[in-house]
Design a protein around this nucleic acid. Structure first.
Lengths: 120, 120
DNA sequence: GTTTCATGTGAACAACTGCTCACATGTTCC
DNA sequence: GGAACATGTGAGCAGTTGTTCACATGAAAC
């Protein structure tokens, strides 16, 4: 049921009980909301979204990404770690270099969809 | 061209000049990166993504959203302001109540796409 | 082995952000 | 008019986060 303390605020005049109950049934689970917020949050930062977009053209090593973005490799590496942990990008080691690429096929679609919103 | 200070770090051995130059040509503009980060960032937070998801079932007034999420209407109103300013949701006034709904048709697609990633 | 270099990472600092609290606004009902 | 109530908002605080700095790691070349 609906938590009491919040209904008490305006129960009589405002809240549409049946509607609220219906929406709560379809509501995102905690884990789903957390997961959604995580992936959107990772893409919701200038540096990281630029990294992901750069990788959409193909794999790049850390040093190349640093050069493309004009940032230190340390800063880039910190962000790559977050993206890698969340499985948005994957790493391939080759000698001294580590090449990164998009890991999840949904990421492409998400960024493309986001661009449609931004560019129209 | 490519900014000098960042190339200097590992110019001789690591950076693939032609590849970096090519990627930089296709690189996101500053405004596009900022716009992408903004919309993803807005969806990249637990409370806001729950609000947007709740609105995907139809319009709701502030008080109903508060009841659904179990949060104060003040906290919800603060977040609605951000979503409204960014044109992710729109407001319709009716007497004392203000009903919110999804403003941009891309938002539906984005959240649905994000859910596919999370739920698989 | 030693050097060189690409990458990874912990600590620290500054900037940002979400919530709370108090209060303002505007509408309805009496 | 005044009371009640849904909503909006500014200030302040606590928690989070992105970058820098210094240093560690691991691989290639000599």
């Amino acid at each position: 049921m609906i938590d009491a303390p919040f209904l008490d605020q305006c129960e009589k005049t405002c809240v549409h009980d049946d509607l609220v109950a219906k929406v709560r049934q379809r509501m995102l689970s905690d884990s789903a909301a957390e997961g959604l917020a995580q992936i959107f949050g990772l893409l919701g930062e200038r540096t990281r979204v630029r990294i992901v977009h750069a990788l959409m053209g193909g794999e790049l090593c850390v040093c190349d990404i640093s050069a493309v973005l004009g940032m230190t490799s340390s800063a880039v590496s910190h962000q790559l770690r977050l993206l890698r942990t969340a499985k948005l990008v994957k790493a391939r080691k080759e000698g001294k270099n580590v090449f990164y690429s998009i890991d999840d096929h949904h990421v492409h679609a998400l960024v493309a969809q986001g661009l449609e919103h931004v560019l129209e």
